[in-house]
Structure formats: structure tokens, C-alpha cells
């Protein structure tokens, strides 16, 4: 039999945010004359959908339609401070900053609308469809656009808000070693099934089954995108990708896309997953980060599945076919040597 199957599991406890010298993301919101609100951030959307999630959060916090939110993440030179889109911190940090800024801007919006409607700001409520109503008086309302026009042209006010999502620096307790480095933690368990061809060393990932505990989802489609894309990326890291192939010559570095190994569309395994929404205490609406965690646990799960299949623990990635063949050869050689007293983990070989 040259093909052997195995199953592997990995479980992860993944921090959201980092213990930098304080970890801030700031947001600014202001209204245009058309009743749109611009959310200015320096947090970068690199395809994960941060702008979409921030627009949703801003719309919810402002009480206006999501179509009226413009998220501007143009320029880290001129925008409000953000430490960066990393450590799975984007939705958590920027989301908190946006809510904070929206609260301030919403207060101004209600004050402006109150003056136009001759009511107390505390008696007003936005309906989320672009209008602000006086509670208990359904015929007394003003559109958000009219309120914005009134602020700009009649009341001479800016409708704006400033916000920050901030985690102060946590110093290590010299006595106990205790510290509080992150903002919340997400969790996942990933199970993979692989088939290893012991003649070519090739590993085929058959299935990836996962459960992700990630707090409240802001946008399930974005979460789906991260998980599916992350599973593929994790497989790519486990089996294919390296800029430093282990051959001795510098000339063997990949010089083009064609020389950089990646799995293609037909190598994508069957991916199934469930999401558990257990809200965090610190994130906006109970959000935790999912980004990086989608790509990391598939890697040990695949390596463990390879061990289950062939009985050899591989300790480097990517697990190229050559790595598998060499590991099998080493194993064979060592098992042919006279037995030594050794407590071998697993005991898969006779």
C-alpha cells in the first residue's frame, strides 16, 4: 500500500490585539451636506472586508442606513492613528473606535435634530432608515439629510465625533510574571484528514473540519471568506509555500510566480465549519478576531494527520514530498539499527 490515510487535530487559543507600548486605533466621523457620514481610519482593508464591517458598525451606532456611511482608509500619513491591521485586531480595535466616535457624532446629530423639531434630544430616536423621530409623536420627524443641511447652513455646526479603541500597555508583574497582553481570545479546533503517498511523499488534504469560537459575528459572509480562504492558506503553508527551498544554492530561490509553489483550485480540500458566537467582554458587540486564526491551526492539524498516516513526526514546514520521503527513509534506517532503549512517542512502527 503506497497510500496511507491519517487524521490530525489542532486546537488554538488566539489573542486579539497585542501588548505594544499601548495599542490604540482612532476614528473620526463627520457628516457631509448630503447626510452621509465619513468614517476616517488609518486601519487598512487588505481584502478582509474591514471597510464593510466598519460601515455596518458606524451605521448601527449612528442609527443611519449603511448606505450613508463612507469609510475612508486612505492615508496613514494624514488619518487618525492606527497601529495597523494585524494581530486580528482590526474589527475589535477599529470597531470600538468607530462606536466611540459615532456616539459623539450621534449626540450632535440629535441636538441638531432636536432644535429643528423643537424637542428634547433625549426624546429623539433615529429609525435606521434615514429619519429621526420624536418618541410618541409619529408625525414629527426629520430626515438625517435635512438635519445635516440644517447643521451646515442654519445652525453653523459640524456633526462629528472622535473615538478611540485603546488597550493600555500591560507590564509584567516581576513577582508573578503575570500580565494582560491581549484584549480577548478566540478559539478554534481544526480536524484534517490527509492521504500520504509513501512512494512520492505527496500529501493530499482530503477534508478540513473546524469549529471557530469567535465572539459576535459582524458580517457572516466576511467570516466565511476568512475561514475558507484561511483553510486554503493554512494548507499552502503546511505543504507548499516557501521562499527558501532547502536546496543549497541561492539560485534555487523562486524567481517568478511560476516557481513559487501554491495549491491550485483543484487542490482545495472539502471544508466544513461551524461558528460559535460567545461574546467577548471587550470587543464591539462582543467581537473577537478571526483573521489570522483561520490560517494557523490547519498547519499543525495537517502535520499531525501526516504523523497519524505514516507514523513519523515531521518538525518543519512546508512538508514537501521530499520532506516526507526523507523522513520515511530516516525512520526506516533508524528502525533497522539495533534497538535502543528509547521511549518513543506514538509507537507506530513495529
Amino acid at each position: 500500500m503506497s497510500k496511507r490515510r491519517g487524521t490530525g487535530l489542532a486546537t488554538v487559543n488566539y489573542p486579539t490585539g497585542m501588548n505594544l507600548g499601548g495599542d490604540p486605533t482612532q476614528a473620526l466621523i463627520h457628516s457631509t451636506t448630503t447626510g452621509n457620514f465619513v468614517v476616517t481610519l488609518s486601519s487598512t482593508d487588505l481584502g478582509q472586508g474591514l471597510k464593510t464591517a466598519m460601515a455596518q458598525i458606524a451605521a448601527d451606532a449612528m442609527g443611519v442606513p449603511v448606505d450613508n456611511i463612507i469609510v475612508d482608509t486612505g492615508d496613514t500619513d494624514t488619518g487618525p492613528h492606527c497601529m495597523g491591521t494585524f494581530a486580528s485586531r482590526g474589527t475589535h480595535r477599529a470597531g470600538n473606535a468607530v462606536i466611540d466616535a459615532a456616539d459623539e457624532a450621534r449626540d450632535v446629530l440629535m441636538e441638531v435634530a432636536a432644535e429643528e423639531l423643537e424637542a428634547a434630544p433625549s426624546d429623539l430616536e433615529p429609525d435606521g432608515d434615514g429619519n429621526i423621530h420624536v418618541l410618541g409623536a409619529p408625525d414629527r420627524s426629520i430626515s438625517v439629510m435635512d438635519a445635516a443641511m440644517a447643521a451646515h447652513f442654519e445652525q453653523g455646526r459640524t456633526i462629528s465625533g472622535r473615538g478611540i479603541g485603546f488597550k493600555p500597555k500591560s507590564d509584567v508583574d516581576p513577582e508573578t510574571g503575570e500580565m494582560d497582553p491581549d484584549s480577548t481570545e478566540a478559539h478554534a479546533t481544526v480536524v484534517t484528514e490527509v492521504e500520504v503517498d509513501t512512494e512520492t511523499g505527496e500529501v493530499d488534504v482530503l477534508t478540513v473540519k473546524a469549529v471557530y469560537e469567535i465572539g459576535q459575528m459582524v458580517n457572516p459572509a466576511l467570516v466565511d471568506g476568512q475561514i475558507i480562504g484561511g483553510a486554503w492558506m493554512g494548507m499552502a503553508h503546511a505543504l507548499y509555500e516557501t521562499t527558501d527551498p532547502y536546496y543549497p544554492d541561492i539560485d534555487h530561490k523562486p524567481g517568478s510566480f511560476g516557481e513559487y509553489s501554491l495549491p491550485g483550485p483543484s487542490e482545495v480540500p472539502d471544508i466544513e465549519y461551524e461558528v460559535l458566537e460567545i461574546p467577548s467582554q471587550t470587543g464591539p458587540y462582543g467581537v473577537k478576531g478571526i483573521g489570522e486564526m483561520s490560517a494557523t491551526p490547519p498547519i499543525p492539524a495537517i502535520v499531525n494527520a501526516i504523523k497519524d498516516a505514516i507514523g513519523v513526526q515531521i518538525t518543519e514546514i512546508p512538508v514537501t514530498p521530499e520532506v516526507v520521503l526523507r523522513a520515511l527513509e530516516d525512520e526506516k534506517e533508524s528502525s533497522e539499527e539495533p534497538p535502543v532503549a528509547e521511549n518513543r512517542d506514538g509507537g507506530d512502527e513495529p
Partner: peptide
């Protein structure tokens, strides 16, 4: 899958 195999995608994992 065969038709798009020359178009590299780094984000989606191709399934979508």
C-alpha cells in the same frame, strides 16, 4: 477549476 488554474487568488481559497 481547470480553466482558472492560471489565475492566482491569494485570498478566497478558490471555492467561492
Amino acid at each position: 477549476e481547470d480553466a482558472i488554474s492560471g489565475n492566482v487568488c491569494r485570498c478566497t481559497g478558490y471555492d467561492p
